[in-house]
Amino acid sequence: MNKIFIAATSKVAAADLPSARLGPRFARLDLQSQMALLAVESLGVDFQEFSPDRVAVCLAAKIGSLSTDVEFWNGRDGAGGPSPTLFAYTLPSAAIGEIAIRHKLTGPNLCFVDDDKILLSEAADLIQRGEADYCVCVSCAVVTAAAAELIQIPPETGACAVFLQRGEGLRELTEFDRDMKSLCANFCRPKISG
């Protein structure tokens, strides 16, 4: 059985958003999708190299889509009614959809509502089982001020990503690699600019 390797990592923050130019629809996306897309972009991986149906996309969303849910719900009484676009993002897996659309990745998806402690091992398992050959793992912690107030935790905006593959890479993934944030901080590649 081939070992699973970390081939790339990234870590992005809210401060990285204003300079992001990730397509003409970027401003339409909800904050979580924006952060997720930015994290994937910052991996610096050329997805064209791979068969799209062999690349899985896995996400851990710390509070699901609650930040967007609150935004949608608070806007419901506006003249004209609530936003159909925003409703489409009131799902934690919407960010996966946006990643898949942008990079044309058609492999299987996983999405957990939680922090990312099982994300890497579940993604590695997908590869071990042969359901995918590569996995884009994204961990999002998007808690807006309104969501923070609702569930009484501190606000935060951050995302990090790891690209997993078989056989070779920066280093082997081990069972001790549970904390994606520190993993990505230690390995961070320079972010793509522009």
Binding site: P52, D53, V57, A88, Y89, A94, I96, G97, E98, A100, I101, H103, K104, L105, T106, G107, P108, N109, E131
Partner: peptide, 19 residues
């Protein structure tokens, strides 16, 4: 089991059902 993504549109399925 099996899973896939259409990579097409956020709320509309790929018309050709290939996913």
């Amino acid at each position: 089991w099996g899973g896939s993504n259409d990579a097409n549109h956020l709320t509309g399925p790929s018309r050709d059902g290939s996913g």
